[in-house]
Design a protein around this nucleic acid. Structure first.
Lengths: 225, 225
DNA sequence: TGGTAGATACAAGTATACAAGTTTATACTA
DNA sequence: TAGTATAAACTTGTATACTTGTATCTACCA
C-alpha cells in the first residue's frame, strides 16, 4: 500500500542552492559580489552547513569562486568559457538535430509543435521571460527525444556562463521574431526528415544567438573577467 | 615579496575525494559496495565533514548514489550513460582533430610526437598501465592545443563511466598495438594538415575502443545496472 | 509456528563549536 | 603626519553534537 507522498522532500541544501543560483543567473546578485556562508545562512534562516554545501556545488559549476580564509565571490563572466560552451553546443546540437530529423518519435514531434505555437503566441504578447523558457524547452525536447538526457544537462552546464548573458538580453529590445522563425524552420526540417537542412539551420541559429556578446560586454564591462 | 609556497595546500576534502575516486575507478571498491560517511571518516582519520563533502562531489559525478537515512552505494555502470559519453566524445573530438590539423602550434606537435614515441616504447615493454595514461595524454594534448581546456574536462567527466570499464581491460590481453598504430596515423594526419583524414581516423579510433563493451558486460554482469 | 509491535541500531541531514589564516582597523611610535 | 605593530573582526576548513527518518532485530501474542 503506497499512500505516502512520492515527491521526495526537498532538502535545505537544494532549496538554498536553487535560490542562490537563480539570484546569480538573473543578475540580482551581480558578478563580483562578495558572499559569506555565515551571512547567507542568517538571511535564509538555516545553518552554515547546507549553505556551505550549496556554495561548493555552485563553485564546481563555475558560478562562485571560493577562496579559503578569504571569502567567496560571484564569478565574473569569462568570454573564453562562453566560447568553449558555444563550441560544444554547436558540435553536439548539429548531431542531435540530424538524429532528430531521422527518427524523432510522434510524441516529441507533438511537443515541438506545441512549443512553437506557444512561442508565436508569447511573441505576440511580448512575454519575453516566457519566450526565454520556451526557447530552452524547444532545444531540450530535441535532446530528450533522442534519449540524450545527460548530454542536455552537460550542454546546459557548459553554457551556464552564456545563459547569464542571455538574461540581460531579456530587458533589451531583442530579435525574438527572427529566433522564433528559425525555430519554426528547424521544426519543419525535422518533420520533413531533412537532416542536412536541419543541421544547416541549427548552425545559423546558434550563431545568431551568439552575436550580441560584444554589445553586452560594452554595456556591462564590470561583469566580465 | 612572494616567498610563500605557491602550491595551494591540499584540503582534507580533496585528499579524501581523490582517494575514494581512485579506489572506485580502479575497481578496488567495486560497484554496488555500500559506504558510510562515519565508517569512511574513521578509516581515513578525518571527521565526517570532509568525507561528506567528497561524497557529495562523487554523487554529482555519478560515482556514488546517496540515499538519505538509508545509505550510500557505489553506482553500477549504466550502459546508457556510457553510450551518451561516447556520443559526446565522438562529435566533439571530430571537431577537435579538424581544428588541430588546421592550426596546431609547434609546441603541441612536439608533445604529440614525444607521446607517440613513448607509446611505442611502452608497447614494447608491455607497460599497459603506462599506455593507458599515455593514451589519455595523447587526446588531452590535442584539446589543450586547441585551447579547449574545459571541453576536455567535460569530455572526461562524461566518460567517467566508460573509463571505469577501461581499467578492467588493462588486465586482459588488449589490442594496444592497433591503438598505438592509430594514434600514430592520427598524428601524421595532423602534421600533414589533413583535417578530413584526421576526422576519419579519429572516428575509427573511438569506435574501436568502444568495441569490448559487451565482452566486459558478460565478464562482470554484477558491475552493471 | 507465524506475524506484528516495539525497541534499537544506524543512515544521512542539520546545527553548532572550534581551528587556522587573512584582512582591516586602531593605536602607538618615530 | 607617516608608518608600523598589534589586536580585533572577519573568512572558510574541520570536528562534533544533535535531529530525523529507515531498517532490522527481538520479544511477545494469537
Amino acid at each position: 500500500m503506497i499512500t505516502q507522498n512520492n515527491r521526495t522532500k526537498e532538502s535545505s541544501r537544494e532549496k538554498v542552492y536553487k535560490i542562490i543560483k537563480n539570484n546569480i543567473m538573473n543578475g540580482d546578485i551581480p558578478p563580483g559580489t562578495k558572499l559569506s556562508e555565515k551571512e547567507m545562512s542568517e538571511q535564509l534562516d538555516v545553518s552554515r552547513t547546507p549553505v556551505r554545501e550549496a556554495f561548493l556545488q555552485l563553485n564546481q559549476e563555475g558560478l562562485l569562486g571560493v577562496f579559503p580564509q578569504v571569502g567567496t565571490i560571484v564569478t565574473k563572466i569569462d568570454l573564453k568559457v562562453v566560447e568553449e560552451g558555444r563550441f560544444v553546443r554547436e558540435n553536439i546540437e548539429r548531431a542531435i538535430v540530424r538524429e532528430a530529423a531521422m527518427k524523432l518519435d510522434a510524441e516529441s514531434l507533438l511537443q515541438l509543435e506545441t512549443n512553437v505555437t506557444l512561442q508565436e503566441f508569447s511573441l505576440g504578447k511580448g512575454s519575453f521571460q516566457k519566450l526565454y523558457e520556451l526557447d530552452d524547452e524547444f532545444h531540450r525536447i530535441m535532446y530528450h527525444g533522442c534519449d540524450k538526457y545527460r548530454t542536455w544537462e552537460m550542454v546546459k552546464q557548459m553554457n551556464v556562463q552564456f545563459d547569464r548573458l542571455r538574461i540581460f538580453r531579456l530587458a533589451v529590445n531583442h530579435q525574438w521574431d527572427i529566433i522564433v522563425a528559425q525555430h519554426k524552420e528547424i521544426f519543419h526540417a525535422i518533420t520533413n526528415n531533412d537532416p542536412d537542412l536541419a543541421e544547416k539551420l541549427i548552425e545559423e541559429h546558434l550563431r545568431l544567438v551568439n552575436i550580441e556578446k560584444k554589445a553586452l560586454l560594452n554595456d556591462n564591462p564590470s561583469y566580465f573577467a
